[in-house]
Every structure is written in structure tokens, then in C-alpha cells.
Amino acid sequence: MTSLSLNNVKKHFGRTEVIRGVDLSVDDGEFVVFVGPSGCGKSTLLRMISGLEDISSGVLKIGNRVVNETPPARRGVAMVFQSYALYPHLNVRDNMGFGLKVRKVPIDERARRVMEAARTLKLEPLLDRFPRELSGGQRQRVAIGRAIVGDPEVFLFDEPLSNLDAELRVHMRSEIASLHKRLGSTMIYVTHDQIEAMTLADKIVVLRDGLVEQVGTPRELYERPGNLFVAQFIGSPKMNILPVGSVAKALPVRPDSAAHVGMRPEDLKLTDPGSGLVSGKVLLSEYTGASSLLHVELPDGEIFLVAYDGPTIDADTTLGLTIAPDRLHFFDSAGQRAS
């Protein structure tokens, strides 16, 4: 186990700056998830930590060592790739033991560590198979096994579940969570899947355009988003945002600096038309099983999303929407949280 810190870390590709000064600290044994829209730099940042990408400026420390110039294999990190990156010409046993072989670990020790990892991941019956003979989930387990055998200080996961189907993804997610619990290692995980981020993370780092927008626990990010971007990025369906002016009369109290008000779809309650915070007409009702997602058009044309678990509501029904005052989120004109 070890901690990790990034101090004003930047990355340029030619004239393009993709990581624009990231400061972050990751504690011993912490599970940190990088999330953000495509192209925000989360995978680049992970590759910089792994050593696969150079750091243009700033300082990266793993433990107490500055590792900016340290080759990947000497950083004490292991990486699980999105495409698994298993060597197709080697069987599972050799895939898992390859890194140890390169590091000239004695053959007995290598075999012992491979067996140990295989036992942990229930891969023993598959050791003599080749990657092409494995299912997606099995390949993913082998990729994780390959990371485990090296006994790294930090595990790096680059969207490891994105190639799996929905059911397998849920299963592998719980396996990764239990692996983290069992090993207690520091893990950094990149995903664009919010459910993965919320369920796995001790700490989520939201990135946008190469900058950290907010760092916090899943609950903090969901309940107290630091700005409009995080408010709308975290949570599915995303938060509804309105200018404060359009609902000013209906708002009981609000901060002086508030320019926007945010309401999560699951916090909104239905009421009679004209009696709530806003009123609107149902455009579409999407039944999702556990609940329905209503698309409500407000008089100014704005579409509000409402999570609703009552009886079916037909399109064109007019209704009012209300919300508990403590579930409102206010943001100032710069988009920062107003309190």
C-alpha cells in the first residue's frame, strides 16, 4: 500500500495542453475514480501515473519517491487495460507470469505467485488456456490477475469493464470491490460509467478539459456538487437547472448570489398544476420498471426530467412540481455553488 500525489501536473501534445495543472492526493489504500466526459484527459492522466505517457511539467510522487522519470515497471504500479491487452501467443499462466519472468523472478516463486493469484480470482481451471479460448469476463479476470501477481503498490484500471455486457459488468464490479477490500491496495480507476464510479469509489475526481472540477466522496459530489458542471455530470438522469429569476417568487429562501437553481429528478414531487414550484405539460413518460421518467415541458419551453413511481401518467397531462427546500441546489452566475 502507498499514497500518491500529483502537484501541478501538466501534459502537452505539441501545442495542445490536455492536462492543465492537476493537483491531487490519493491516500494509502484509497479507491479513487476519475470520471469526466470523453476527451477530458482522465485516461491520459492515468497513463501519466503509469509512466506510459511523459509528464510535461509538475511533480508525481508515489510513496515518497518522485517518479516523473521512472520507467513504468519501476514505479510499483500495475495497469488493467480496457481491451485487457492479454498476449495472444501466451496461455493464461504465462500471461500472468510474464512480468515476473521479465523481472527475472525465480521460476518457483513465479509459479507460486501465479497460482496464488489464480486461486484468488478462481482462474485455476483456465491456466493452460489461451486468451482466444476465454470469455470476456474470464479475460478481464486474467488481466486483473496479471496485475496482482506483480504485487504492485498502486493498481490502475483504465475503463476495465467497458467491453463487457451489462450483467457481467455488475458482477465484475462487485469482484473488483471485493478485491480492493481483500488486498487493501491503492487503486485508481477510470470510467465514464457513473454507477461504477458511485459504487466503487472512496473518492471521485471529476475532470473536464484537463482540469479537476471537484474531488470528493460519491455522496459529497451527489449531494453538494461544487459547480454546475459537476451537478449535471453526477447523477442520472441529470439535474434540472433553471435560472433563479424564473422561479424566484416560489422559492422560500435563497442565497443572495444565487443565479441558478438545480433540482434532481428524484427529489421532485408531483402536485396540482399551479400550486408547486413550476408547472408544465407531460411530453413523454418513459417506463423503466422500478419507476417512470417524465419529460415535462415548462411554459418557457424548458424540459424538466422527473423520476416518478406512481400510476401511469398520460402525455399532455398538465401537472405541478414541488421539492423540499433542503433539496434545492444554488449556483452563482459563474456556475459555482452558492451557499
Binding site: R47, S50, G51, L52, P71, P72, A73, R74, V77, A78, M79, F81, Q82, S83, A85, L86, Y87, F98, G99, V102, R103, R146, G150
Partner: peptide, 14 residues
């Protein structure tokens, strides 16, 4: 050839 395989090789110390 997939570039990730080379990255995996570098991570393994090649």
C-alpha cells in the same frame, strides 16, 4: 498490432 499490448509489455518491464 494493438498498441495496448506494447503498453502492457512496457508495464511488465520490457
Amino acid at each position: 498490432l494493438p498498441k495496448e499490448l506494447e503498453d502492457a509489455g512496457k508495464m511488465d518491464g520490457l
